[in-house]
Nucleic acid binder design. Structure first.
Length: 567
RNA sequence: GGGCCAUUACCUCAGUUGGAUAGAGGACUCGGCUACGAACCGAGGUGUCGGGGGUUCGAAUCCCUCAUGGCUCACCA
């Protein structure tokens, strides 16, 4: 068990026992957390829990801190060299070198991520990107793709049952419009701007076709080609799905629309007006009523469903396959939220089982200037164009680094740089550097001299706490400090992954990896690992580097970013 | 006009269950390799946390209000 977890548990047990008469709820005990202190002078670990608990236990924080300290002095003396109380009620912990060695030992020998955290959580189905198959994926889709795929990967790692889907909007007006645009190109008719898709955009998909296609055949082929292209682009940035759902085939043609309409009618939520079928959603708390079936454009034509109708049906279907849903949509789709949620609620679903994450827009800057249009197509900038220039890793990291609530300016020049200014490069370099040291130490040194230690010796020392201990036994304050800070940060990896999963925020993990890389570079500079005069120290530091390499590698893989051994 | 999101250093941005002196990178000035990868590290100063109220021992963080900007308010998806 991690030392911080042990401290938390000790405090919780102590509070429960000491204040057995008090009537406190579980939230209070959950607020007992041991964290990395903000400043070096505040010890190796710290907690604010005396401050948080004071009002519930009706004690001055400083008194409570003393009580807790006195108890922990008894029970944690093996790990804690010293516990300080800082006004108005902080507890700061100074750990023994054995405690640090123990942390490295568990990182090297246990699973980095415990699958207990998400194991008992409700199953989750994440829908993301879900673009229309009517054109190239733009940067907004790219951001959704990157965030969604990272979240799926992170949440899965915590042990939770999670699945991903892409909902193909291949029914409806936009597809008809695509068909009309393609048909004109196919027949060599004049293109009219305004009610059609840009010629540059669809032209590549209307080539090498046989001569006698009808309108529906052509539409279908063009749509499939565009969809396949989207799949290729997504795959190029490591985005894959458990399931691709076609609105047409899996919702419309499976009769889900009729079923949904019957349910809504059964609840008395629909009415007829102007030849259309309406949902009386204003009664549900929406700002106005919504159309479910459009009035026919031709006499005797069947009424077509709106997007909302299919969306409700699809979400009901998803709720049959998972307990909770997460949709990742662009900020321009906010309008959907209320009517969708209210409709599902009216049909007996719990609204809290549908969570929608709205992603703000992405713009592009190149040469210090904002790029509004793609030079290639004259239209929106395609994911493909940017990925060709910067690669998948930089594309992913840059888009993951910002909070989804913030608009982002993708700096294409920065993403192409090969130095510390480019964050993805900086992190990957740390990994390559760690790998290089491990290679040099166990295979052959850069100058051709034989290795200092064998792989077996390193392997053995990874489980030998007394050897790892040596890394903390230095008289040099800088060496000690950078070693401690790196180890503590490493030990929080599992927490960071869980937090990232719970808050649906992959950017916090990306920032953690950046911080971690910085601490490693600092450790590297202060603590020379390979020391021909001191084999034990070499092994001790190699075991820390090994732990770092393992954590960083895992962290990057959760974000679906490569961790190169050489670069 | 209604709704959602934002506003933190000169610039780009981190910072959630309220906690210690508000952070990082860039830009600017210095310093560190007879090289475990200098593709790196270190030192230097910067703030009315958009304005104004409120809640309390304590607010960038919670509440109210105003301002500015983005998105959105279809029988499009």
């Amino acid at each position: 068990m991690l030392i911080q977890t042990s401290i938390e548990k000790e405090i919780k047990d102590f509070i429960k026992k000491e204040f057995a008469g008090e009537d406190f709820d579980s939230n209070i005990l959950a607020s007992i957390q041991v964290d990395i202190p903000k400043k070096v002078g505040f010890g190796d670990l710290a907690t604010t829990c005396p401050l948080n608990l004071a009002k519930w236990l009706k004690l001055p924080p400083i008194k409570l801190a003393e009580k807790i300290k006195n108890h922990l002095d008894q029970t944690l003396s093996e790990f804690c060299l010293q516990i300080d109380i800082a006004p108005p009620g902080f507890l700061n912990f100074h750990l023994t070198s054995g405690a640090f060695a123990g942390l490295i030992d568990s990182l090297n020998n246990e699973d980095l991520i415990s699958v207990n955290h998400g194991k008992d959580k409700p199953s989750l189905l994440i829908e993301y990107v879900s673009a229309n198959p009517t054109g190239d994926l733009h940067l907004g889709h790219g951001r959704g793709a990157v965030v969604g795929s990272a979240l799926v990967s992170i949440i899965k790692a915590t042990g939770r049952d999670v699945k991903s889907e892409f909902y193909i909007n291949d029914a409806g007006e936009q597809i008809q419009k695509l068909g009309r645009s393609a048909w004109k190109l196919y027949k060599g008719e004049a293109h009219s701007e305004g009610d059609e898709y840009p010629k540059e955009l669809i032209e590549p998909y209307v080539q090498n076709l046989s001569d006698n296609l009808d309108f529906n055949e052509l539409t279908s082929i063009v749509k499939d080609r565009i969809l396949n292209k989207q799949k290729e682009v997504l795959a190029s940035i490591k985005v894959e799905y458990d399931k691709w759902v076609s609105e047409k085939q899996d919702v419309h043609e499976k009769g889900l629309l009729e079923k949904t309409l019957q349910q809504l009618k059964g609840k008395g939520l629909t009415y007829e007006k102007d030849d259309a079928l309406w949902l009386s959603s204003s009664n549900l708390g929406d700002e106005r009523d919504r159309v479910l079936l459009k009035s026919p454009t031709q006499p005797n034509e069947a009424r077509k469903p709106t997007y909302l109708t299919a969306d409700i049906a699809y979400h009901l279907n998803k709720l049959e396959r998972a307990n909770e849903l997460l949709d990742i949509f662009g900020a321009d789709h906010q309008g959907q939220e209320i009517s969708l949620k209210k409709s599902l609620e009216a049909l007996g679903e719990k609204p809290e089982n549908l969570n929608i994450l709205f992603i703000q827009f992405v713009s592009l800057s190149e040469g210090g200037q904002e790029v509004k249009m793609s030079k290639r197509t004259g239209s929106v900038i395609a994911v493909e164009e940017v990925v060709e220039k910067v690669g998948s890793d930089a594309f992913r990291f840059m888009l993951l680094a910002s909070s989804v609530n913030n608009r982002v300016v993708f700096d294409i020049d920065l993403a192409q740089r090969s130095d510390d200014q480019n964050p993805v490069f900086y992190v990957q370099y740390a990994h390559a550097r760690a790998c290089s040291i491990l290679r040099n130490a166990t295979e052959s040194f850069f100058d051709g001299s034989p290795p200092i230690v064998t792989k077996d010796e390193l392997k053995t020392s990874l489980t030998n706490i007394s050897i790892i201990n040596v890394a903390l036994n230095s008289s040099n304050e800088k060496e000690i400090q950078s070693t401690k800070e790196l180890i503590i940060k490493l030990s929080y990896f599992n927490n960071e992954v869980n937090r990232s999963a719970d808050t649906l925020n992959p950017s916090s993990l990306a920032h953690y990896l950046l911080d971690l890389a910085a601490l490693f570079h600092n450790f590297y500079t202060n603590c020379r690992a390979i020391n021909k005069e001191n084999k034990e120290l070499t092994l001790a530091r190699l075991s820390i580097i090994q732990a770092f390499q393992k954590v960083l590698n895992k962290g990057l893989s959760l974000l679906l970013i490569n961790a190169p051994e050489r670069m």
